[in-house]
Design a protein around this nucleic acid. Structure first.
Lengths: 251, 251
DNA sequence: TCAAAAATGATCAAAAACGATCATAATCGA
DNA sequence: TCGATTATGATCGTTTTTGATCATTTTTGA
């Protein structure tokens, strides 16, 4: 991996989660600790980040409210792990669908130097991919105000033109009986379409989403592989894994 | 492979992915390392790229958003005036097309509280509209790396579903003879489509764009009203206004 | 507080990339 | 066609980058 790409990856990762550990960076870039240390030294000299013991953090003008920051950090830790696990599933030359949302966005730092094509319906995904060299395609449609996902008839029409090797979806709720569900019917429709048009489908959900149900059903459990973390309740995971393949990664 | 072809290939590859490794280039062109090194040296001398250890990177060095921001800042005054003039043309309940680009983005501050619907193919436009309550629709398609405009077959297909009251287009060049033109053929195609599907079409161009020509013709002058500022050369404006309606606003 | 564990920075050797050079092949002009 | 010019690919010594090692510092937790 080129030095510049490594630097980009580091900054992207940092942008995602405000703080990164050295181990995260070596894994994301495939470089050794020494190299990453040198990178961090360089980037700190460029005032792009601040080194901290064990890793690096974004440069922040003032300290934010501590408990809030801590909570988001913890959540993001889980997202990072899920993102990394998802990225490992992607092969070169794959065409993948990345659902709108912050969980799927966590995949991006790990794929910036990969030779793949991404199709998405999320504004945040496009923005995150904008700097990278990844070939990006976007679905048309109505820009939903809350999540900034592209939905509706236009999006449905757009997605028909594509076929994916893999689809990665965020999901609000995963229930052993009700399957995958999400609050917004229009987003559910797009997720379902993406899932149907992919050879392999994966749902990324942190431990808080398990055992929950939302208004709109997307699909039954067996239509996608679930990726979650070991923070999830053991019994819930067992129950779900009777229906579909579940990949549990350590947070 | 001819030297010029190789140079084109290198720049195209670079445009696609921001950084390239030497090995990628030798493979893509079939030339030896020595030749590619010479090419890179030449292209760097021409300021077309920046050499880095192991390959080359795009000249901007920074993220791609930086030049966009910079462009937005430069000639900002003139753009603001153009944006305001364009906003004045929009009526309540209009459905308008806003072209990708910084000039059309300047319209947005003046329409945030209007009851209108916007269709766009520009990432920057979506981002700017994201916070507002404006109903926003986006064309699908390939995300072009430089301008972050959505282009290609997907975009063309998407736009067929819409009909606009007004279309507002940025334009690189406006010439009395050659008409409206822009460097990228794919963007030209979208602009032309938007123009055809709108009851009224407006081209926004600051004074530096007049009397210029670019590679891809979008339309002849009489297909849209030109909006420019009084910084524009008087003779050029007269010449153009023999072909189409021109609105000159004071900068 | 103190010892164990983890992280850090310095150092060094190996690997990769580089630029210079030279011989050969292709292209051009007479 | 022939000689000159230019482009190309291979080689080689030099420079840069990288990864491993290890002594030192910092953090952790008992």
């Amino acid at each position: 991996m080129l030095t510049d790409q490594r630097h980009e990856t580091i900054l992207a990762l940092l942008n995602q989660s405000k703080t990164v550990r050295l181990a995260d960076l070596t894994e994301a870039t495939g470089a050794s600790e020494s190299t990453i240390r040198r990178d961090l030294t360089d980037l700190e000299k460029q005032k792009k980040l601040k080194r901290i013991h064990g890793g690096a953090s974004v440069i922040t003008g003032k300290t934010e409210e501590a408990p809030l920051q801590e909570r988001t950090l913890r959540d993001q830790g889980e997202k990072i792990v899920l993102g990394k696990a998802a990225a490992d599933l992607i092969s070169d030359h794959d065409t993948v669908f990345l659902d709108a949302g912050s969980t799927t966005a966590a995949i991006i730092p790990y794929i910036t130097d990969r030779n793949i094509t991404v199709v998405t319906n999320g504004l945040n995904i496009i923005t995150a991919l904008a700097g990278t060299g990844i070939k990006t395609y976007v679905l048309g449609g109505h820009v939903k105000s809350g999540t900034h996902a592209f939905v509706g008839a236009g999006a449905i029409a757009s997605i028909q033109a594509y076929q994916f090797d893999k689809a990665f979806l965020g999901m609000n709720s995963v229930d052993a009986e009700f399957g995958y569900s999400t609050p917004d019917p229009e987003e559910a429709l797009i997720k379902k379409q993406a899932l149907d048009r992919a050879a392999e489908s994966y749902v990324l959900a942190d431990h808080t989403k398990l055992g929950e149900t939302s208004f709109s059903k997307v699909a039954s459990l067996d239509e996608a592989t679930l990726i979650t973390t070991d923070k999830a309740d053991r019994e819930l995971v067992d129950e779900i894994s009777r229906e579909t393949r579940v990949e549990v990664v350590t947070a």
